[in-house]
Amino acid sequence: MLRRWTRGAATGVVVLALTGGLVSAAQAAPRAQELSLRVSVGTAQPVPATQARAAVPCERGKAYYTRYQSCIVVGATVTLLRNGRPVGNAKFDITHKMTLKQKSLKWSESVKIGKARLVNASGVTVRLKVTCGGKCKPDNRFPRGRKLGREFSGKVNYQDKVAKLKKDNTSAKYVFTFTKPGYSPGGFNYRSVPFRCDDTFWNRQHTRRTLSAGCAFHTFIPVMTTMRTLPEIAKNIRKVQSGGGHYGRIGSGKPLHREADQQAITDNRNKVCPRGQTPPRPGLSCDEYPFATTREGGHHVPANSRGTAWVPEEEQNKQGGRVTTFHKKERIVHRDAFWVSV
């Protein structure tokens, strides 16, 4: 089933998605442009699960995004005026599909001007200028001199630079200008979903990368689902998430945040699974939730919001690999938020 997320404004938001299911997305770092509490009503049809995993949906009036893909569709109107009175108009959609690369600082986007409905509005030329902030550089291959009418599209290639161990977050700005002989030009602009490139995955001495530099839509909060198939660990997580602040549970408004500092992780772990503890029988290992590798680990959350359990060593093993994989696949850097779904 397709699950929808909508990020809300400062006070936190619960949104009922048309396709069913309660989705909550109150965030620690709200964004000013978000609308406050609203029910998502629209013409979206439920999308079958297999299709849903393939790509983000594209819907007029919406920016949809995951960690690496976004689709923005803007409904646009160009109005021609004579002596202040409208004498013609063109209506069309502009669709942007951007795919970031997990392990590269180069990516691209397609921009499509949809078929326009023209009412006394022939001969309007479209121009697109793209800029992006920080060290990001666009290479704009969008065709010039094309007119509104038939659908047409083009590519914008991007290249970012980021210093070793650093992050660079920015967005692309699209400036559209429309011209017609005998008329003064007009236009509008808007921005892409913000993205962040980082080169923060290095070994202890900072001599070698553990993961190549890459970029992600960092305001998307990824969901860790790989704990589900570790029965005892999943049981412990479920139990802890059901009480207190429900840290990490989707809908709680309290995601977990990665802690990447080795000392902080060790301190967290030692507080709840102290060294030298002997398991009740061989083959068991102390497991804690929230994870020691998060800011919420150790005693950072109240006692009713955390817990430990003795789980098979083999589950601990697998958990280690899966958490590492998750951090790298989603480019979860120090302090990034994520949910844990069991």
């Binding site: 089933m1 397709l2 699950r3 929808r4 997320w5 909508t6 990020r7 997305a25 964004r31 442009q33 978000e34 609308l35 699960a49 849903a52 995993r53 983000v56 949906p57 009036g61 919406k62 920016a63 949809y64 995004y65 995951t66 923005i72 803007v74 409904g75 646009a76 109107t77 160009v78 109005t79 021609l80 005026l81 004579r82 002596n83 202040g84 004498v87 309007v124 559209f176 429309f178 011209t179 017609k180 005998g182 008329y183 003064s184 030009p185 007009g186 236009g187 509008f188 808007y190 305001t219 998307f220 909060i221 969901v223 689902t225 589900r228 198939t229 570790l230 029965p231 999943a234 779904s341």
Partner: peptide, 28 residues
Amino acid sequence: AEAASPADSADTYASHPMAPRSARLDEH
């Protein structure tokens, strides 16, 4: 647990609204 869980549950998206845009061209 393995049978109950899909291999890769990546079917969540985030979204925000994109207001319609308009431009006006005034005849000289």
